[in-house]
């Protein structure tokens, strides 16, 4: 490592903005640590609401990732492996939530899945199911925002994977579904995992769509980002404490993955 580093001279024109960029990303986090009410922290974190919000955040983000996997992987396969009229359009629609402000997504979800929404009304009358203001509603909102990350990642992995392996499986008697399950899926596993991590991270930080579609109620729909936002209204100290918890969880998760799927040199 070190001999290579000494061989590569780094031009100042690159080094300076690079260091600035690093400071720009790291300083706010440092600020959070400096301003943290360390002494009052144990008391702040003792409140049941904090842990309730954290538990809700983790379970909802995980459920949303599961939903994204179940629906997103087949969708990615469809986009990568089949030709149909309007495929480009479908692809654009799938990626739309990436650029759409999450609040807009929340509004849209409310209009479709809300009590008076096109689908929501039917869900209500047929199954007595209402999504807004419920924990499943949080999962729906998070999955809506997070799924495109997974689809894009898996589609990329599928395009990079050699489709001839599927042909080889077919000549050995594997149906297309078996070939997908036993050959393609293991081949693109790193891409699926990377997509799942991205989706999970996005779901954990989701705010706009959640508060718009699922509302805000402690223990039911108030995830960590919502708790932070509302605490900021009148109790910045509590907001900082909550932010620290969220930061610690994020760092723990990234460390847990040990950069295996997130390092640029990792598998495609």
């Amino acid at each position: 490592m070190s001999p290579r580093a000494s061989r590569n001279r780094v031009p100042v024109a690159l080094l300076l903005p690079a260091l600035l960029g690093l400071a720009f990303l790291v300083l706010p986090l440092v600020g959070l640590l400096i301003r943290a009410p360390w002494r009052a922290l144990p008391q702040q974190l003792a409140s049941a609401e904090v842990w309730e919000a954290l538990r809700l955040s983790l379970s909802c983000a995980t459920s949303a990732t599961a939903v994204a996997l179940v629906l997103g992987v087949p969708l990615a396969w469809l986009l990568a492996r089949t030709e149909f009229p309007g495929r480009r359009l479908v692809r654009a629609l799938v990626t739309l939530p990436l650029v759409l402000p999450p609040v807009v997504g929340g509004v849209a979800l409310l209009l479709v899945l809300g009590r008076n929404g096109v689908v929501g009304r039917w869900l209500d009358s047929a199954f007595g199911l209402t999504l807004p203001f419920t924990t499943p509603g949080v999962v729906v909102a998070e999955a809506f925002v997070a799924m495109p990350f997974l689809v894009i990642s898996v589609e990329g992995a599928l395009r990079a994977a050699d489709p001839r392996y599927e042909e080889a499986a077919a000549t050995l008697g594997a149906s297309p579904l078996t070939a997908f399950r036993r050959v393609t899926l293991p081949l693109i596993a790193p891409g699926v995992a990377a997509g799942a991590v991205l989706a999970w991270a996005r779901a954990l930080g989701e705010f706009g769509a959640t508060i718009t579609f699922a509302g805000n109620f402690p223990g039911r729909t108030q995830t960590m980002p919502l708790a932070v936002y509302l605490a900021m209204e009148n109790d910045p100290q509590a907001a900082i404490a909550l932010s620290l918890v969220l930061l610690a969880v994020s760092v723990a998760v990234l460390a847990g993955l040990r950069g295996r799927w997130l390092s640029p040199g990792g598998q495609a």
Partner: peptide, 21 residues
């Protein structure tokens, strides 16, 4: 008859052994 239902075995040029197995 699709490939998976033909009694045909193929040895591919670069073998295409499943790398994860």
């Amino acid at each position: 008859v699709p490939a998976e239902r033909r009694p045909v075995g193929v040895v591919f040029q670069d073998y295409l052994l499943f790398p994860h197995l």
